[in-house]
C-alpha cells in the first residue's frame, strides 16, 4: 500500500500504490506504518501524493500527525505531486502555511 524509498540517505520519499484513497478506512494503518519507521535517520521526507486519488479528513489528520512527529525530530516534510483537487482541499484548510507543498 505504501513504501519508503531512500536515494541518498538524507532524503526519503513515501509513495502510495496506484489510485490510493487515504481515508478513515486506512489512515490508521498508514499511521501505524509511519510509526514503525525511524525518521531520525533522514534529513527530509517527501510525501509523494501522485497516486493518491482521494483524501478525507482522517487522511489529512494522518499527514498532520506525520508533520508534527517530524517537527519534533527536526526532519523536514514536503508534500509533492499532489493533484489539483487535493491541493484545493489542503489550501482550504490552510495547510499550505503549515506544510511545504509542491504540487
Amino acid at each position: 500500500m505504501f513504501k519508503i524509498d531512500c536515494e541518498d540517505k538524507q532524503e526519503a520519499r513515501i509513495h502510495f500504490e496506484n489510485d490510493y484513497r487515504l481515508s478513515g478506512e486506512n489512515s490508521n494503518t498508514f499511521k501505524k506504518w509511519l510509526k514503525g519507521i525511524n525518521f531520525s535517520d533522514y534529513e527530509a521526507i517527501g510525501l509523494d501524493l501522485r497516486n493518491v486519488e482521494f483524501i478525507d479528513s482522517m487522511g489529512i489528520a494522518s499527514i498532520i500527525w506525520l508533520k508534527r512527529d517530524l517537527d519534533k525530530r527536526k526532519v523536514n516534510l514536503k508534500i509533492i505531486n499532489c493533484s489539483d483537487n487535493i491541493l484545493k482541499i489542503l489550501k482550504m484548510l490552510k495547510l499550505d502555511s503549515f506544510i511545504d507543498i509542491n504540487s
Binding site: 498532520i64 508534527r68 482550504m92 484548510l93 490552510k94 495547510l95 502555511s97 503549515f98
Partner: peptide
C-alpha cells in the same frame, strides 16, 4: 477571512 484548522495554531 479564511484561516486554518483548529488544533495546529492555524
Amino acid at each position: 477571512p479564511l484561516e486554518g484548522i483548529i488544533g495546529i495554531s492555524g
